[in-house]
C-alpha cells in the first residue's frame, strides 16, 4: 500500500500541475473550445443545405453529421496543447528537476499523458452538452460510454502528441507537424464527409487512418439508439479494437523514448 502511494504520488503531482496550469491559462481554455466551436458553426451551417447523407432512410443534417468529428477535433486540439506544454517544460528547464528525482520514467509519461488526457476528456464532455441541440438523444449508458471512450481516445492522442513532441526543441517545429500530420489525419477521418462515393484511393487512406475509428466510435455512441441508420461507419467492436491497439503502441513509444534519455 505504502509502495503504491510512493509510486502514485509523483504521478499525481505531475497530473495536478497540468490541471492547475490549464485552469490558470484562460486563453487555452477558450481557444481549445472556441476554435472547434467556430469550425463547427461555420462549416456546419455552410454545408447544411447541400449535404445529403448517403442513406435515404436517415435524414442526418450536416450539423449533426459533423458533430462527432468536432468532438474528435476538441480532443485532438487539447492533445496538441499538451504536447506544446511538454516542449515548454523541456525548454524552460522544468523537466530537469523531474529527471533528477526518483520518479520512474514511466511515472513521468503517465503524469504528463494522463494530465493532458483528463483535460481533453473534460473538454469533450463540455461539448457533449451541445449534442441534444442537434438532435442526438442521449441515454445514461451512452453518456457513460462516451466519457470512458473519450478518455481512452484522449490518452491515445496525447501519447501520440507526446511522442512527436519529445524530440522537438521548438514549438515552431511542432506547428509544422501539426499542419502536416495531425490535421490531415483529422480531415480524412470521416469527420467531414462519409466514405461513400469517394475515389478508391481516398477510401483506402481513410480505412488505414486510425483517426477514422476514433470518429466512428464517437459517432456510434452518440447515435446509440439509432445506430442502424449509419452507413459506411466502422463497427463499434472494430473501432474499439483499433483504438486499444494504437493506445498501447503510442503509450509504449512514449515510455520507450523517455526511458532512452536519462535512464
Amino acid at each position: 500500500m505504502e509502495n503504491m502511494k510512493q509510486y502514485l504520488l509523483p504521478v499525481y503531482s505531475l497530473w495536478l500541475r497540468e490541471i492547475v496550469r490549464f485552469l490558470r491559462q484562460r486563453k487555452r481554455v477558450v481557444s481549445a473550445l472556441g476554435q472547434p466551436l467556430i469550425f463547427w458553426a461555420l462549416l456546419g451551417f455552410g454545408f447544411q443545405s447541400t449535404f445529403v447523407y448517403p442513406n435515404q432512410q436517415a435524414s442526418i443534417s450536416y450539423l449533426k453529421y459533423f458533430f462527432p468529428g468536432i468532438i474528435a477535433l476538441v480532443v485532438l486540439f487539447t492533445a496538441i496543447f499538451s504536447s506544446f506544454s511538454l516542449i515548454e517544460d523541456k525548454n524552460e528547464g522544468y523537466l530537469q528537476g523531474v529527471f533528477v528525482s526518483p520518479i520512474t520514467r514511466l511515472g513521468l509519461v503517465l503524469g504528463k499523458v494522463l494530465g493532458g488526457a483528463t483535460l481533453a476528456t473534460f473538454q469533450a464532455c463540455l461539448f457533449l452538452i451541445l449534442a441534444p441541440l442537434v438532435g442526438f438523444s442521449l441515454t445514461l449508458l451512452s453518456v457513460l460510454l462516451f466519457i470512458v471512450l473519450s478518455f481512452l481516445i484522449s490518452i491515445l492522442l496525447t501519447a501520440f502528441g507526446y511522442c512527436l513532441a519529445w524530440k522537438m526543441d521548438s514549438s515552431q517545429g511542432f506547428h509544422a507537424v501539426m499542419m502536416l500530420i495531425l490535421m490531415p489525419l483529422w480531415f480524412l477521418s470521416g469527420a467531414f464527409f462519409p466514405q461513400t462515393n469517394l475515389p478508391w484511393l481516398l477510401k483506402v487512406v481513410m480505412t488505414l487512418n486510425p483517426m477514422t475509428y476514433v470518429v466512428a466510435i464517437i459517432r456510434r455512441v452518440l447515435h446509440w439508439k439509432e445506430m442502424y441508420l449509419l452507413v459506411d461507419t466502422p463497427s463499434l467492436a472494430l473501432s474499439f479494437l483499433v483504438i486499444l491497439v494504437f493506445l498501447g503502441v503510442t503509450s509504449y513509444l512514449a515510455w520507450r523514448q523517455t526511458n532512452r534519455s536519462f535512464g
Binding site: Y12, R24, L95, Q96
Partner: peptide, 24 residues
C-alpha cells in the same frame, strides 16, 4: 541547475508542493 527549473506559472508554494509530491 544553472538554468532555472521553476514553473513560472505556478506560485512559490505550488512549486515547492509539486516538487515535494514528486519525492513522495
Amino acid at each position: 541547475f544553472q538554468k532555472p527549473s521553476l514553473d513560472k506559472k505556478l506560485s512559490v508554494f505550488e512549486n515547492l508542493k509539486f516538487q515535494g509530491m514528486i519525492y513522495g
